[in-house]
């Protein structure tokens, strides 16, 4: 069956990604050189940046799948949006926890109005709204449509949020805004980051495929149970 194949492929991807992340952890602890300016804390960056990247990737999928759902009303598009949104919520949480931890040491404060941090916080709440809307509307079809609208409107707002937060920073420059990426990045650091990015992306895509096929299977199952119930009573 097709959904079984999707599930197997998803699981394989997850395991490959987990292997890459384990390798990344080994590299972070034993192999990669310590960044001169920030010291050891800079290593959290190998978790933080891929976390952010997958969050944005997830949001992209949610927005596209939601637009497809509104357009075609195809259950598969909605299932894809839900699966990606759940991943986004998790990876967004990773980003939101690791960011301030790094910031506490690097910048001397847990929270700073760093553009990407602020943007992710607002995105994370948009994901939250996505699930709250879905779950709280009596008619499931309407709930799905509302959630899709929330995702689309949320993604349209990203440029404006971005402008507002970069503006804010220019008004109030943070303590020392260090950008670890850029031409100064040590080749070994770049390798570690790439391994981590690959690992996170594979885990996310794997979970996404896995979750997507489960979602479809669960819906089919619920429908079948309802039909059996109706048949038994008729």
């Amino acid at each position: 069956m097709e959904s079984t194949r999707v599930r197997t492929a998803g699981l394989l991807l997850v395991w490959a990604g987990v292997a890459a992340i384990l390798l990344m952890h080994w590299m972070v602890v034993f192999w990669v050189p310590t960044e001169a300016a920030q010291g050891v804390v800079q290593r959290i960056f190998y978790v933080h940046v891929p976390g952010a990247w997958t969050t944005f990737l997830a949001f992209g999928i949610v927005a596209l799948a939601s637009a497809a759902y509104l357009w075609l009303e195809d259950e598969r598009a909605d299932a894809a949006a839900v699966a990606a949104a759940e991943g986004g919520l998790i990876f967004g949480a990773i980003m939101l926890i690791s960011g301030p931890l790094w910031g506490r040491v690097a910048w001397g404060t847990y929270w700073t109005w760093e553009p990407r941090l602020t943007l992710t916080l607002l995105l994370w709440f948009t994901y939250l709204g996505y699930f709250l809307v879905r779950g709280s509307v009596a008619d499931p079809r309407r709930g799905k449509r509302f959630a899709a609208v929330v995702a689309i409107v949320g993604s349209l707002n990203i440029p404006l949020i971005h402008v507002s937060v970069s503006w804010f920073r220019s008004l109030h420059p943070g303590p020392v805004v260090i950008k670890p990426e850029g031409p100064t990045l040590h080749p070994d650091m770049l390798t570690t980051l790439l391994v981590s990015l690959a690992g996170f992306t594979m885990v996310f895509l794997g979970l996404f495929a896995f979750r997507y096929s489960i979602e479809l299977a669960a819906r089919r199952q619920a429908r079948a149970e309802d039909a059996a119930l109706a048949g038994g009573l008729a």
Binding site: L122, L123, F125, T126, L128, G129, L132, V133, S136, V137, A138, D139, R142, F146, V150, V153, G154, N157, L160, I161, V163, S164
Partner: peptide, 21 residues
């Protein structure tokens, strides 16, 4: 109006959107 969370849902949906405004 269609949500059983009613008005408590509104800030979650609108505040992230209205933050730039």
């Amino acid at each position: 109006r269609h949500s059983n969370l009613g008005d408590s849902l509104l800030p979650v949906l609108t505040f992230p959107l209205l933050a730039p405004l």
